[in-house]
Design a binder for these strands. Structure first.
Length: 385
DNA sequence: CCATCCCGCCAACCT
DNA sequence: AGGTTGGCGGGATGG
């Protein structure tokens, strides 16, 4: 867009129009989706994806991990993932919910350590090996406490992203809260009292996760009703991008993007300072050995969380994505996520777009659209210069 | 100034 | 050894 050719050709030119938005995980994920969200996709190679999307492999891992947590992908083998598609999301969410609720049974039972975890139970674990040192007064939040005795000593295993994502999702799916603020979820996803350092890192991850989940339209980044605090609103399945299965009009040779549409992220390093003036003390200060504990508690109480706003944000439907039978969003108290119709919805949504070109075109406006939506839905005045 | 979060070093884990 | 995965946090960018 605003890129000048000179910037592209001559990277050494001064202020190249670098924009992190062009390299964001969210965008990358969107690209990833447009590239692989078709029925004829079976397995995805990480290298392939990385090169096609024009990003370093590291980034693919980020995306893939959270996508897998939601069921869109499944690890097949080294370097290979199989595409499950959005149709698999409902099921994954359902499982997460059950899992979250189950591990939550008598979570209020504080003491009783011994985990009488019955058989089965696949992987996935976390443990809470500490009792918050202070703040003995924990309010009455009964909710999900995901805890499992992990490995003995060093459990290098599953650390963050995947697990964090699952827990993050459980937060929504297991409670009736639809809006959770950033730091709230951060506190929930790990103990409460935590030295800034840990929290800091955790929040970074949260942002990462949120970006790709946003891209999936499972959540939306907003701001708490009246607060300025950033928050995430659970959308569940709703404006889910269609999937080309059985699309009659899909051109056979629609392999590559159409002309203008370029899914590749052009690389524009973010001018790394190459100063060699470093004293040499750039030793890695490892600092605290972070305790791996995941302890989440939900704030089931939702008395006033979602105050009904005059202009109900739900009334704005997602343009072309608008599901025919959606539009409730009424603030019914116990209008918890209704899992039953997810399946139905997923199939109902199927043939949304019959035109590949339209799809590609629309893709380009996704970002713009997002801000627009944010502006209208969230009453936050946002000015586009 | 501070919220957001990209980048990539480098450590665990596999082959 | 060499290749994969993916924590983790510095520090740049955006508001």
């Amino acid at each position: 867009m605003a890129l000048s050719y000179s910037d592209i050709i001559n990277p050494s030119s001064k202020h190249h129009t670098y924009s992190r938005k062009q390299k964001s995980l969210g965008l990358l994920c969107t690209n990833f989706l447009t590239l692989y969200n078709r029925d004829d996709i079976d397995v995805i190679g990480l290298d392939e994806a990385a090169s096609k999307l024009g990003v370093e492999r590291r980034r693919i891992y980020d995306i893939v991990n959270v996508l897998e947590s939601v069921g869109v992908l499944a690890r097949k083998a080294k370097n290979k993932y199989s595409w499950k598609g959005f149709a698999a999301v409902p099921k994954a969410l359902q499982e997460l919910k059950e899992e979250g609720l189950r591990d939550n049974v008598n979570a209020i039972d504080k003491q009783s350590n011994n985990s009488a975890k019955v058989v089965d139970d696949d992987e996935d674990e976390d443990d809470d090996s500490d009792s918050n040192p202070n703040t003995g007064s924990q309010n009455e939040n009964y909710g999900i406490i995901k805890s499992t005795a992990a490995s003995r000593a060093d459990h290098r295993r599953e650390k963050s992203l995947g697990l964090l994502t699952r827990n993050f999702v459980k937060l929504f799916v297991c409670s009736n809260a639809n809006l959770i603020s950033l730091d709230e979820s951060a506190k929930l996803l790990l103990g409460d009292g935590h030295n800034s350092s840990i929290m800091r890192t955790k929040v970074r991850r949260l942002y990462d996760i949120a970006n790709v989940l946003s891209s999936l339209k499972l959540i939306e980044k907003t701001h708490a009703a009246d607060t300025r605090k950033p928050a995430f609103r659970w959308l569940g399945l709703r404006g889910k991008p269609e999937n080309g299965s059985g699309d009659p009009l899909a051109p056979l040779e629609s392999r590559k993007r159409t002309f203008g549409a370029d899914v590749t992220n052009i690389s524009f390093k973010r001018s790394k300072l190459d100063s060699s003036v470093d004293g040499g003390k750039s030793q890695s200060l490892k600092m605290q050995k972070q305790i791996k504990d995941e302890k989440i508690v939900t704030v089931a109480e939702r008395g006033n969380v979602d105050q009904d706003s005059q202009q109900n944000s739900g009334s704005f439907q997602f343009g072309p994505f608008a599901p025919v039978s959606m539009a409730k969003v009424g603030n019914s108290e116990e209008e918890v996520t209704q899992i039953y119709d997810w399946e139905a919805l997923s199939s109902t949504f199927r043939p949304q777009y019959h035109n590949q070109a339209l799809r590609d075109l629309f893709f380009h406006y996704t970002e713009a659209w997002k801000s627009w939506y944010t502006e209208v839905a969230g009453k936050k005045p946002l000015h586009i210069s």
